[in-house]
Design a protein around this nucleic acid. Structure first.
Length: 345
DNA sequence: GTTCCACAGGAAAATATGGAGG
DNA sequence: CCTCCATATTTTCCTGTGGAAC
């Protein structure tokens, strides 16, 4: 059934990227100066999730490393490393210059100094989910270091710009901007077919089924590949030689549930209680949520903290917020997943 | 229109957590 | 073990906004 599982994993960068030639060329041309050992501009890549932002960024930097000997690349997910310190540390670590850093002895700006003094090969820094960074000023610091080229990946351009200050906005506006859109069903189908070709045995899945997956994924390539992966995994465990349609339907739900479960797992117990309150008692305003929450917990947090939880869960796409001020209500983000796991208080 | 209230979300102070060094 | 230090989380305090009652 499965020929090469790597191809189906999230984060796999294929040797040929489908339907993104224009974007890839654009991004390569921004990094072009590096091949002549000259400083390159900052690039901004924006687009909805699963549009291939991370994929083409990694692809282009890989390509660059094939062409040029003296170039390093590093990838930082700012969603995981959202503090200034962690992001810088991650970069230094990738460059192998983090050895003697102790938190006590290294005030903030020394990390930047350290990067500045770094006279290794030119380096491309990919900052993924850069809009999750709590201090976007970090971009400015990196921006001013000529030996680093930066690729900023974000969902929406406006959200990124609204959080940085004037001087940085003007510098970023002049930098090259690669915009990406959702894939069409056709394109998604091609991507899936390529993955199925390398990742699965022959005739495991029909073209029609690939279209079904593409349809269910609604333009999100990451989700589409996730569905294909779980479907193949299930069929494999069931010792099937093909993927039956029933499995496919289940896989679409599973893949969504998995993504949701992963964000749910990253919540603290208190946050989970708040989530449960909203789940069990329909759309509610913050005060009502807090009242319910207080009853279910020994040492309740304050209203303000619960509000922070709520907005965090909105960011995670677990909840939806409707209304602007007094009439705001939170509700579960609508998904057709009937979760059979009912947890306790 | 004015007033009032619930809310959003920023800033800073307060408190909890975790790792290194004694 | 304890202390120190930086980070992480929570609380307190606050300003600005918009809908609803007056």
């Amino acid at each position: 059934m499965i020929r090469d599982a790597r191809v189906l994993r999230a984060g796999f960068v294929p040797r040929e990227v489908e339907h993104r030639d224009a974007e890839i060329n654009h991004l390569s041309s921004v990094l072009e100066p590096i091949t002549n050992d000259e400083p390159a501009d900052t690039a901004i890549v924006t687009g909805p999730s699963g549009a291939g932002k991370t994929c083409i960024s990694k692809f282009v930097t890989e390509q660059l490393r094939e062409e040029v000997l003296d170039v390093e690349t590093t990838y930082v997910n700012c969603w995981r490393n959202y503090t200034r310190f962690r992001t810088l540390y991650q970069i230094l670590d990738d460059l192998g210059a983090s050895l003697d850093i102790h938190r006590q002895s290294t005030p903030h700006d020394e990390l930047v100094d350290r990067l500045q003094q770094h006279d290794g090969p030119r380096t491309v820094v990919i900052l993924d989910e850069v809009d999750q960074l709590e201090d976007p000023g970090l971009i400015y610091d990196l921006h001013s270091l000529p030996q680093f080229a930066i690729i900023c990946i974000a969902n929406k351009e406006e959200e990124l710009f609204s959080r940085v200050d004037e001087r940085l906005v003007s510098r970023l506006r002049s930098s090259e901007h690669v915009r990406m859109d959702k894939y069409h069903d056709e394109q998604l189908h091609d991507i899936l077919r390529a993955r199925a070709k390398w990742g699965l045995e022959e005739d495991v899945i029909t073209d029609r089924q690939l279209y079904q997956i593409a349809d269910a994924a609604a333009g999100d390539a990451r989700l589409a590949i996730g569905i294909l992966r779980t479907a193949a995994g299930k069929a494999d465990r069931g010792n099937r030689t093909r993927i039956p349609n029933e499995v496919l339907v289940g896989a679409a739900e599973d893949a969504r549930a998995q993504i949701k479960q992963r964000s749910l797992d990253s919540l603290t117990p208190h946050q989970r209680v708040v989530y449960a309150v909203v789940r069990d008692h329909g759309p509610l305003g913050p005060s009502t949520i807090h009242e319910h929450y207080i009853e279910k917990v020994d040492d309740p947090r304050t209203k303000r903290t619960v509000r922070t939880y709520l907005s965090k869960m909105v960011q995670y796409n677990l909840l939806e917020a409707e209304g602007t001020s007094r009439d705001r209500e939170y509700s579960l983000v609508d998904s057709v997943t009937a979760s059979p796991s009912r947890s306790d208080s």
